[in-house]
Amino acid sequence: MKRKIIAVTACATGVAHTFMAASALKKGAKLMGNLIKVETQGATGVENELTEKDVNIAEVVIFAVDTKVRNKGRFDGKIILEVPVNAPIKNAEKVISDALRLIDEK
């Protein structure tokens, strides 16, 4: 069974790390055989915006951010792992398994 994850990435400048982190998370999830949807909040605006449905479907939320998450209220009641935007760039699989552990240990 594939695990389902959503994530939001954002960095201070909103040009480089936001998108590298998103790409690293997607790659990591794929390698692990999981499904992930990633919303990027960068200088060009919000892309791949997560819908209410996505939020309902996902088991866990990852914030890989160095700034405030926009429209954070959407995720109320979900289990959230917040890490610096550099964390998935360094090791995305670790970030994803940390997030999954949060729910598994609950």
């Binding site: 040009v15 790390h17 998108f19 590298m20 690293a24």
Partner: peptide
Amino acid sequence: LSQIASKLM
């Protein structure tokens, strides 16, 4: 710029 950066992954 963003796309070039994400390609570096």
